[in-house]
């Protein structure tokens, strides 16, 4: 029997939709970034949002996590239309989402432990020593055991990324968003971070959404994806990246996935 726990509720079929984006148009004023985006992210997917620089990948993520309202179209979390939901319902959804920002975005005036403890103190009524235990666990999970009392400025960039991941996981989120997780990391650290993401997904069953153009990561961990194009101003491919590489007939997609060599 597959163990049913907090993250996989009951015996779900593998392809239960978790996030649905429908006819989404993103624009700043009259400048349209992307239009007519429609795709589905299933539970426990590792979903890649890819495309060249400046095509609106991060903007799409910012729409999905509630930072920018779409001009047109809907984003559904399970069955809830996110942008038409009541503010407190929206808060509840976002609380189940953990986000790793591009540069870590750790609060610089707080130690790593305080950074991770803040959401726990805000949203749970745990006692201080329980919070401390959870903080220790999260730091240990990302390989930063013992760095509780360090300030973000005192640790390296890769460690900041991992600390950011620990903070994103603080509330045991159902969905994890990553904005360029391996940007600015050496290949080995990037690989370790990929492994960590994969391991966490496997053990926790969370849905993972990654914005990246790192080919190694895309093929190593992604099982579903959407490809945005800056010129067409819409998505021009979607599906398993490995299949896209083998089967896509679109020259742009093929060029991207083969670093322009294929």
């Amino acid at each position: 029997m597959r163990l049913a726990h907090n993250f996989i509720i009951g015996q779900m079929p593998e392809t239960q939709p978790h996030i649905i984006v429908k006819d989404l148009t993103m624009a700043f004023g009259t400048f349209v970034v992307q239009r007519d985006l429609t795709f589905t992210i299933n539970r426990s997917d590792i979903f890649i949002i890819m495309g060249g620089s400046g095509c609106g990948k991060s903007t799409l993520m910012r729409h999905m996590i509630g930072l920018i309202a779409p001009v047109k179209g809907q984003i559904f979390y399970d069955d809830v239309n996110f942008w038409e939901a009541e503010p407190d319902q929206r808060d509840r959804i976002i609380r189940k989402v953990g986000i790793l920002y591009q540069s870590g975005a750790l609060w610089s005036s707080m130690t790593l432990a305080e950074n991770i403890a803040l959401p726990l103190q805000q949203y749970t009524d745990l006692k201080p020593d329980q919070v401390r235990e959870l903080v220790t666990l999260k730091l240990a999970l990302v390989g930063l055991a013992g760095f509780d009392d360090y300030y973000p400025s005192e640790i390296s960039g890769g460690m900041q990324k991992r600390a950011g991941l620990a903070r994103a996981m603080a509330m045991d989120p159902e969905i994890l968003f990553f904005d360029e997780p391996s940007a600015g990391l050496d290949p080995i650290s990037a690989r370790l971070l990929d492994d960590l993401i994969l391991e966490l997904r496997e053990s926790l069953g969370s849905t993972v959404v990654i914005v990246t153009h790192e080919l190694a990561s895309i093929f190593a961990i992604g099982n579903n994806s959407v490809f945005l194009d800056a010129d067409a101003k819409t998505m021009i491919a979607q599906g398993d990246p490995n299949k896209l590489l083998a089967e896509s007939t679109n020259p742009l997609v093929h060029k991207f996935l083969t670093r322009g060599e294929g």
Binding site: L3, H5, L137, A140, L141, G143, L144, A145, G146, F147, D148, D149, Y150, L196, E199, L200, E202, S203, L204, G205
Partner: peptide, 23 residues
């Protein structure tokens, strides 16, 4: 232990606390 739990424990104990890291 449940499979995920065993793997997470392995992950959490994989990197030992760096000596002298704690202030």
């Amino acid at each position: 232990l449940p499979e995920g739990v065993a793997r997470l424990i392995a992950l959490a104990t994989a990197v030992p606390e760096r000596k002298g890291a704690r202030k």
